[in-house]
Simulated assay, not measured.
Amino acid sequence: MMTITLNVQGMTCGHCKMAVTNALKELDGVKHVEVHLQEGTVDVDYDETKVNVEKMKEAIEDQGYDVK
């Protein structure tokens, strides 16, 4: 199990938090997601044998947010 912190720009409210959380949780291998709106970060616990960082970034970007 791995943990990564992604810097996500454009999240400002509860809807943003829910959109990012749900997009990541739909990916096979993502176990836990914690969004920090104030910091603009997302902590993700995931199984590196099932999902990679690129897939997570794509899922977030598909929701309209920028991942740095």
Rank of each mutant, 00 (worst) to 15 (best):
V44R: 09
G10C: 05
I60W: 00
K25T: 10
G10T: 02
K25W: 01
V67M: 06
L6N: 03
A23W: 11
M1S: 14
N52M: 09
V30W: 04
I60H: 05
V44Y: 08
Y65C: 03
H32N: 15
T21Q: 13
T12S: 15
G29P: 02
K50M: 13
N7H: 06
E34G: 15
V42R: 02
G10P: 09
D47G: 10
A59S: 08
E61F: 04
Q63N: 03
M2P: 07
C13H: 13
I4V: 15
Y65N: 00
M18K: 11
M18F: 09
E61G: 09
T5R: 12
E34T: 15
T3N: 15
K25D: 02
K68R: 06
D62L: 08
L6P: 04
V33L: 11
A59T: 08
L27Q: 07
K50Y: 08
M2V: 13
Y65D: 02
L27A: 11
D28R: 01
T5Y: 04
M11E: 02
E34Q: 15
K25G: 06
T21M: 09
E58A: 13
G29V: 01
M18L: 13
K17A: 15
V33F: 14
T21P: 06
V53R: 00
Q63G: 01
Q9E: 09
M1V: 11
V53I: 10
I60N: 05
Y46H: 13
T12P: 02
K50W: 09
